[in-house]
Design a protein around this nucleic acid. Structure first.
Length: 419
RNA sequence: GGAGAGGUGGCCGAGUGGUCGAAGGCGGCUCCCUGCUAAGGAGUUGAGGGGGUAUUCCCCCUCCGAGGGUUCGAAUCCCUCCCUCUCCGCCA
């Protein structure tokens, strides 16, 4: 959520920044300003009346004690009249507040000034490459063929159990999934200083509002029927919200959390994309990294976060590249994002395996995560998140990059002790 | 699922219709005192929002689990919900 004060005081700046994402966003700023004006006018009026009412009520108490019944009675009538007016105005105010909040909650974050301006993913900027894609002296197979031939990826049975975009894994694939999870968690906790977390995978709507999935992206989420709970689309949601509504001590920061969770996404609007294999599934495993930091440190922390995610691929010895998303491709909550894209031999291209973002205070403002500065002021923290990594995609990358001509594949050196 | 107890400020804990944003204690902060430390003394110490040309000053509104209601007035009374704890049942 953007700071209403910023919108109020620098509307043109906000418009300019939003425009780099999408030109249509400009109009919402004016709408917000109009509603804000209306809102504040009503607040002033209501509070004036309440002040008068409170004063009178105290007066009444005093008059009763002094035995001045008639004067008290007269004052009572006056308060009743004020109450009617207050009730009426408050009803109006409630409507306006609701409109105001809904508007504010649907505005995306402002891109950081360093983010390249561009309309979509074609204008993302490659930052660096790591590793040389392997030269195959045979035609590399896609992972689904490798997996099906070995009998360790079963798409038909996945569909039987749950429908399309669900897969069953057997034997080495199942074990590799588990090995990858443990490997990633070990690296992040032992080498990068993260605290391991295990969290619920069903969460309340207000939690999803905190990180920005709601109210705007409900169609991407699975909702539990009969209960007001949603399946987690990413552990970013639970980890970031661990401190929702809290005021942290300055010396508690920074906080680094990592968790393995399954993630559930409806992938609405991506029909026909990546239909084969396990690249795009409704349910997938992910090890997530979340940082809660002081504002002045967040961009530094973002660079570190990307490096920490990259470390996994380096240890697995799989080539990748890092790209910086342009303004038009930036996610809703992000001020700046780096994607890590892993090399996929069968597609002869790099595909996203991690997305690392600094949301600045955008999520903190929604989730009300603050810290008390040395001066005793409450400030919003900055929150960051990144995949470290998407486990299913890592598994797929291992299978393809380590495949052998006989249709089998090797296990990366660092994973062998986990198998 | 059944029965009971309870949810108050950073924490503990008082408060059962008026001057209570809330006693007292602990903790925190500031100052004083003692050579240092400990002890002691004085003061101060919640959050969100609106306004006054105002982050540091002033005024006001709201907040005692959440939402409704009664009342001129509610932390205090009534209703609904949520959560925590204890016992019973069921269960991985």
């Amino acid at each position: 959520m953007l700071d209403i004060k910023l919108i109020r005081e620098n509307p043109d700046f906000v418009k300019e920044r939003l425009k780099t994402r999408d030109k249509a966003l400009v109009f919402i700023v004016d709408e917000i300003l109009a509603v804000d004006k209306e809102r504040r006018k009503l607040i002033a009026e209501v509070e004036q009346l309440k002040a008068e009412k409170n004063k009178l009520s105290k007066e009444i108490g005093r008059l009763f004690k002094e035995g001045k019944k008639e004067e008290a009675q007269k004052a009572k009538e006056e308060v009743v009249a004020k109450n009617e007016r207050i009730e009426c105005l408050e009803k109006e105010l409630k409507e306006v507040e609701k409109r105001f909040n809904n508007l504010l909650l649907t505005v995306p974050n402002l891109p950081h000034e360093s983010v390249p301006v561009g309309k979509d993913e074609t204008e993302n900027v490659e930052i660096r490459k790591w590793g040389e894609p392997r030269k195959f002296d045979f035609e590399p197979l896609p992972h689904w063929e490798i997996g099906e031939r070995l009998g360790i990826l079963d798409f038909e049975r996945g569909a039987k159990l749950a429908g399309s975009r669900f897969t069953v894994m057997f034997k080495e694939a199942a074990r590799l999934e588990r090995a990858l999870i443990n490997f990633m968690l070990d690296i992040h906790t032992k080498e990068h200083g993260y605290t391991e977390v295990w969290s619920p995978v069903l969460v309340k709507p207000e939690i999803l509002i905190g990180t920005g999935q709601l109210p705007k992206f409900e169609e991407d989420l699975y909702k539990v029927c009969d209960e007001d709970l949603y399946l987690l689309p990413t552990a970013e949601v639970s980890l970031t919200n661990l401190h929702a509504g809290e005021i942290l001590k300055e010396e508690e920061l920074p906080k680094y959390y990592t968790a393995y969770t399954p993630c559930f996404r409806r992938e609405a609007g991506s029909h026909g994309r990546d239909v084969r294999g396990i690249l795009r599934q409704h349910q997938f495993d992910k090890v997530e990294l979340v940082k809660i930091v002081k504002p002045e440190e967040s961009y530094n922390e973002l660079e570190k976060l990307v490096n920490e995610a990259e470390k996994i691929l380096q240890l697995l010895e799989i080539p990748y590249r890092v790209v910086e998303l342009c303004t038009g491709d930036l996610g809703f909550s992000a001020a700046k994002t780096y994607d890590i894209e892993v090399w996929i031999p069968s597609q002869n291209m790099y595909r996203e395996i991690s997305s690392c973002s600094n949301t600045e205070d955008f999520q903190a403002r929604r989730a009300k995560i603050r810290y008390k500065t040395k001066e005793g002021k409450n400030e919003f923290v900055h929150t960051l998140n990144g995949s470290g990594l998407a486990v299913g995609r890592t598994l797929l990358a291992v299978m393809e990059n380590y495949q052998k001509p006989d249709g089998s594949f090797d296990i990366p050196h660092v994973l062998q002790r986990y198998m």
